[in-house]
Amino acid sequence: MLKMTHLSKVYRTEVVETYALRDFNIDVKEGEFVAVTGPSGSGKTTFLTIAGLLETFSGGEYHLDGIEVSNLNDNARSKIRNEKIGFIFQAFNLIPDLNVFDNIEVPLRYRGMKAAERKQRIMDSLERVGLASRAKHYPAELSGGQQQRVAIARALAGSPRLLLADEPTGNLDTQMARGVMELLEDIHREGATIVMVTHDPELAARAQRNVHIIDGQVVELSEDPRFHTVHAAAGDAHA
């Protein structure tokens, strides 16, 4: 489903070159639920932006659903994002001017879907996250947990092959976080491929597989993810 080999990402300024990722290798199979962990600045967010085709990379190969994406132009990349990938952001990233319904509609609009089908899908996905009654509400009128559910509904509405989540519970309190996590597990059980970046070991533990990144490289998987929490806690000042 998602396969990166010898992938590298270099940020160049006039003075220095910084490797965000180097010789990065990962292979996520169809239907897997993978948690990516690592300390702040380890490159896990860079990994996710590249995986989501939000950024280009400097070297190596990246196959997404069997397609080598490095040579695709902006339009083709937009199309893949639109049709194959669902995003769940830490900050929800709902568009404040649009109500719940219209927010979920955004990716469907760019797919050129008919109005009836759009409506069906939006209502289905809202039903799925348990917010069917809030379709006309604006993001500001919802709690954080509800907003994240809307964001998940927006990601699900397009029936993506791959769900990318960045600290999906980072901005939520424990109880809301639990709800969101259960929702993701449900979605996974229904067959979705999920890649989730988190620094929360408890959350990571609920994934099928953990990938740990340090200094832009995947390090050997540990049997016990809690082994790394010491480093994470020490090095991470994540807000």
């Binding site: 639109n82 049709e83 955004v106 760019y110």
Partner: peptide
């Protein structure tokens, strides 16, 4: 966000 959700330029 729109671009991330697949809006082309």
């Amino acid at each position: 966000v729109r671009r991330a959700l697949g809006a082309p330029r």
